[in-house]
Design a protein around this nucleic acid. Sequence first.
DNA 1: TATGAATGAGAATTCATTCAT
DNA 2: AATGAATGAATTCTCATTCAT
Lengths: 203, 203, 203, 203
Amino acid sequence: MSTPKNKGVRADGRRNRARILAAAEGVFADNGPSASTEQIAVRAGVAIGTIFRHFPTKQALLQAIMKDLLRQLTDQADALAANGDPATALFTFFTQTVEQAVRKKSVIDLLARTGIDLQITEAVQLLDHSVHTLLTRAQDVGAITPTTRTDEVTTLLAAMCQATTLPSWNPDLQHRTLAVIFHGLTPNPPNPPNQANDKQAEH
Amino acid sequence: MSTPKNKGVRADGRRNRARILAAAEGVFADNGPSASTEQIAVRAGVAIGTIFRHFPTKQALLQAIMKDLLRQLTDQADALAANGDPATALFTFFTQTVEQAVRKKSVIDLLARTGIDLQITEAVQLLDHSVHTLLTRAQDVGAITPTTRTDEVTTLLAAMCQATTLPSWNPDLQHRTLAVIFHGLTPNPPNPPNQANDKQAEH
Amino acid sequence: MSTPKNKGVRADGRRNRARILAAAEGVFADNGPSASTEQIAVRAGVAIGTIFRHFPTKQALLQAIMKDLLRQLTDQADALAANGDPATALFTFFTQTVEQAVRKKSVIDLLARTGIDLQITEAVQLLDHSVHTLLTRAQDVGAITPTTRTDEVTTLLAAMCQATTLPSWNPDLQHRTLAVIFHGLTPNPPNPPNQANDKQAEH
Amino acid sequence: MSTPKNKGVRADGRRNRARILAAAEGVFADNGPSASTEQIAVRAGVAIGTIFRHFPTKQALLQAIMKDLLRQLTDQADALAANGDPATALFTFFTQTVEQAVRKKSVIDLLARTGIDLQITEAVQLLDHSVHTLLTRAQDVGAITPTTRTDEVTTLLAAMCQATTLPSWNPDLQHRTLAVIFHGLTPNPPNPPNQANDKQAEH
DNA sequence: TATGAATGAGAATTCATTCAT
DNA sequence: AATGAATGAATTCTCATTCAT
């Protein structure tokens, strides 16, 4: 009765936590990572104290957002690993993620800049693991150069997500730059032309 | 009177301007883009008022740094266009620039995040133009896919510069990711397919 | 209904009140008088709301602690008045109290700093009364200068309790400073002159 | 010309520093050590930023005040050591200091509570040294018990300064409690009895 | 022109207190 | 009665910018 371990009243607590996270994501996306906590409070429709009750530090809030985001990406990667065509799943994931980055701009932007030392190692590792799976499968079917390593993929992914914030960024440019990267990941004599040639050569 | 193009007492005036720019670059590189103007003043060995005399706004200072940086890059690109091997000059420029980004981290970092709306269109266009030259020449000798457009190259370049700030970044990773990109820019049957073609040609 | 003097469901109500008081004393002792109510709640194992139910204001909580403390001291004084040697009881009480102050530091500390205007006049008067008894008895047996008044004693006592918080405070220093005070309270030719007289008498 | 080492403009700077210190002393005396920096700014007639320019931390401000105060006391002690009657100088200093404490209340109050870890060791040692001189001289002329040590004196002094903040404090009480302490510091059979005894003993 | 002190709006964070559950 | 989430005023501190010297 006096030990504070009940889980009843937390219904609204958890609801607010979510609202705050959503608001924060939005505000950071709009105004960059230096947006004030006050703005977030306003957008979330709560008092500023409420934010600090849930996330005792701005850091903590940032961390939470990043973890959330990473988890989402991980889920998507896993879904593609489970259902998608191994040959294209990684590229789909890549495209999908960049697409979302456009919407979350500086949030994803933060993702990269762990210079602010958000401790999210675990969440990053989980994502890495899922990407690794996608990569391996693609390599198994010959869709991606076998020597490619996971960190190359995630780095290129992060890079393109950040590029999303460039003023010149647009869907067409996105399509063309991703094409370059995808080509860069594809084995040298891709397939079609060579096969034809090879067949002929075999005779 | 305040534009640095007229003559007069500005012997040390211009010297100060340069010192401030250098100091600012250094401070931003060391302490991130949120470094205070005061710190810059200290590093430059001038009073804070002097900084604001030269750059009426922090924005203006940022702009100046970026223009400076872009001009340097442009110069390097031009040098390579003049002296380098057309087939490799663009890749050399690419590598070179990323290499520098590693050292200037948060400066380059700012470059991308033009969310701070630095009006540097002109300097960017000059760089674009120089890159365009490098690209065209490489395409002329068949070193780069002919359909590649300049904005793809600059975007990929900016992306990789930003990736430089990732905590996992290291020379090896840099080498491998750039290799992917370079491969992505290279025409499909780079060499080996030629053998097949040659065989056919032999008939 | 809210005064803790009626009967009813307050079995655990009163228990909580005590727990809170104890916790508060401890927290203040450990973290200084600026400790937050939240900390007290944690240490007491109750929710913060419960604290405010029992003590509608932080002031009220402080008051309660002080009254508690004063009552304890009063009890001890009374015990010494009942059982102790009149000649030494006051000094014993003095020493005892200072000793406790060392342990309760910032609590006693608050005691003095009634700048926070705790209205505890009554409890203070009760203590004064008990001290007065001790003093009178000591004076009756010639152990303390007859002109000494109660407020001198309590003031010196309070002063020494506060001194307890000095960084240089230690048992040896405590012993020596109290010795000075005790000497100060002792009638002028306490013994030595007598010895001289005695010696003469012996001849 | 560009090195910031001139000392010209600092006229107003130093003036403000003094104003701030004075204001802070006053505000703390009135409102206790938890008074806000803003209040101090108002009383000093400067913007709050100015305070933080001079004292980068509230701690620093507190420290400065304490050092100032300690220096004043040290000066007074030294003056008395130079000019005063050795037999009474220490008591005069004691009284004088307590007298001032009445006016500076919680400032002196802070003095004691170095719990807030103001690093003022040096200033404290200087004062200790001066008090030591006063004490030694008094002991040399037999005005104070020879076994008394300096730390006893300074501790009793600090204790009485703090007692100054008690609500019951008043000039009469001050006089009487100090009398107790002075008596406590005085050799047992002050003088007259000893002479008699000594003479007899000489025989 | 350079200096550096002053300004003051804004940011993060804390905490006593209230109130819905 | 107890719980603990929400509130929001207050506080410390920062920093771009202004201005007297």
